[in-house]
Design a binder for these strands. Structure first.
Lengths: 239, 239
DNA sequence: GCATTCCTGACAGTTTTTGGCAAGAGCCCA
DNA sequence: TGGGCTCTTGCCAAAAACTGTCAGGAATGC
């Protein structure tokens, strides 16, 4: 393996191995002698990576300046932080966790100054009433939508009437008061929106409707757009 | 310059120079012969970068796989998209724009498959009542907070009484119904929260309170925490 | 003081890199 | 068809870089 490739591999190891990591471990990882490892660490530092090396302790990757500094502007950083914090508050557990780790990863990739900025961002999200915990696992639902798999669940509508539904899940909409699933409903043969907190007994079925999700979703939005237009029109006529 | 450093530099050049770019130009950029340039391109490809080379045309960087720097998981991507879309809806114009361009930058940095995933994310944010447009420019306020500059503005409180305030802006909180500024108020000599839509005639003053913003903010949260605790305690006692 | 680990210097053998030259091949245009 | 451009590949000998080994030195924690 060429030296350059090895350096990339080393960078990778520094990123993924739990820190601190000793030179010996890294040398083992990349198949070189310890002496060469010290030389390689040196090279990486020369290339801009900030690697903390403590005697009797090991190495810790501080800043992954491997490269493209990702150049986010201030406003973009604030937007990222605000958005992710929002998601951490309103999202279901697995999504919130995703937001948290995304934030951590971004922080790790940013140059020193920006990383601090990320931590001390000016903006904060505050949601007073986190939506009620739904009985179904939003993570499962999300994955079903992504994998374009048909699903089945029990649903209680506004007046409490219960039905069993089979649908193609298209998208999950986060509204302030509740989370909703947009889907093609096989019972009604039309698009329907289901509140997650009224769903129960979710099953992911075998049938896969790939790759129609994106186009169906487009159709749905198109239909919504037209209805909204019609609505506005009739309102206008009435005034 | 070492070969490795040169490869990084070459990557940088490929990213920033308008494509297509000829080997000669690149060779010039990195101070090597053309022959070596061809070899370097080859090395980069071997390292995973996808570089399109067309005869009689030049090179085009397709995918910046310097490595998988942004190794985002599905959940993390969805969280990013949802958060940024949310910000695009509820944020003030400049922040919304930041969210949009941040999304674009992320998309550009992601490997092919993930980039598509970003575009067709399953999640959507929907806010029914975007907060009323405040009379003051949230962007200016944000920047003042970041720069830790004292500000002055007119404020109408709940009952309509008007006061002129000078404060240290600490943080902007996005609540569902309104945006609020958390600040140290010199009039009251205490922390205060101001609704942006009740502020007017904003001026950024000369005085800079750097670097006290972060610590003041920490104090504020600490105070809030204690009050909430006290509240909970008295509630408990009352029940 | 001891163990652990980072860090540095020197040396000799090996490997890699480099520039120049030459030839092939794809694309565009006249 | 021919002629520019430009990517791509092969070969060679000199130059440069890299590597492992050995031998310390220095910082940190116990």
């Amino acid at each position: 393996m060429s030296r350059t490739a090895r350096l990339f591999q080393l960078m990778q190891a520094l990123r993924s191995l739990p820190s601190p990591v000793t030179a010996e471990r890294l040398a083992d990882e990349t198949n070189v002698s310890i002496r060469t490892m010290y030389r390689d660490i040196d090279s990486l530092r020369g290339l801009g990576a900030v690697i903390d090396g403590e005697a009797g302790f090991g190495y810790t990757l501080i800043e992954d300046a491997t490269l493209p500094p990702l150049g986010f502007e201030d406003e973009e950083l604030e937007a990222l932080v605000l958005g992710l914090r929002e998601v951490m508050q309103v999202g279901d557990p697995s999504l919130a966790k995703g937001a948290e780790s995304a934030l951590a990863k971004l922080g790790a990739r940013l140059p020193e100054g920006q990383s601090r900025r990320l931590k001390h961002a000016v903006l904060t999200a505050k949601s007073y009433n986190p939506p009620p915990a739904p009985k179904v696992d939003a993570g499962v639902l999300r994955r079903a939508a992504w994998d374009e798999r048909r699903i089945r669940f029990d649903y209680s509508d506004v007046v409490g009437a219960k039905t069993s539904r089979e649908v193609y899940p298209l998208s999950i909409v986060f509204m302030q008061s509740s989370h909703c699933l947009v889907a093609w409903c096989h019972l009604r043969n039309d698009f329907r929106v289901f509140r997650l907190d009224r769903m129960d007994s979710l099953d992911v079925l075998e049938e896969c409707f790939r790759p129609r999700r994106v186009s169906m979703l487009r159709d749905y939005w198109e239909q919504m757009r037209r209805e909204a237009q019609k609505m506005a029109h009739s309102e206008h006529a009435a005034s």
